[in-house]
Simulated assay, not measured.
Amino acid sequence: MADPSLALQGVVYNRLKVDCPSVANRVYDRPPQDVAFPYIGLGEVQIVDDSADCIDGVEAFITLHVWSRAVGQVEAKRIASEVHSSLHGAELDLGPAWYFHLIEHRSTNYLADPDGVTTHAVITFRALIGAR
Rank of each mutant, 00 (worst) to 15 (best):
M1L: 13
M1T: 13
A2W: 12
A2Y: 12
D3E: 13
S5L: 09
L6K: 12
L6M: 14
L8I: 07
Q9C: 09
V12K: 05
V12M: 04
N14W: 12
N14G: 11
N14M: 10
L16A: 04
K17S: 06
V18M: 14
V18K: 15
D19M: 04
C20K: 09
P21Y: 14
V23K: 06
A24P: 05
N25Q: 11
R26M: 01
Y28V: 01
R30H: 08
R30N: 08
D34A: 08
A36K: 07
A36S: 04
F37G: 03
P38T: 11
Y39R: 00
I40M: 03
G43F: 04
G43E: 00
V48Q: 09
D49V: 06
D49S: 09
D50S: 13
A52P: 07
D53Y: 12
I55M: 13
V58C: 14
E59C: 07
E59A: 11
F61Y: 10
F61C: 06
T63C: 02
L64H: 02
H65M: 02
V66E: 00
W67C: 00
S68M: 03
R69C: 08
A70Y: 10
Q73N: 07
Q73H: 03
Q73A: 04
E75A: 09
A76Y: 01
K77C: 00
R78I: 15
S86N: 03
H88G: 07
A90N: 05
L92G: 05
L92A: 08
L94E: 14
L94F: 10
A97S: 15
Y99F: 13
F100D: 10
H101F: 11
L102T: 11
I103D: 03
R106G: 06
S107L: 04
Y110E: 01
Y110M: 01
Y110I: 03
A112Y: 03
A112E: 07
A112F: 06
D113N: 15
P114L: 12
P114D: 12
V117C: 10
V117H: 12
T118V: 06
T118R: 05
H120V: 04
V122L: 00
I123G: 02
I123A: 02
F125Q: 05
L128V: 13
I129K: 09
I129S: 11
I129C: 06
G130D: 14
G130V: 10
R132H: 14
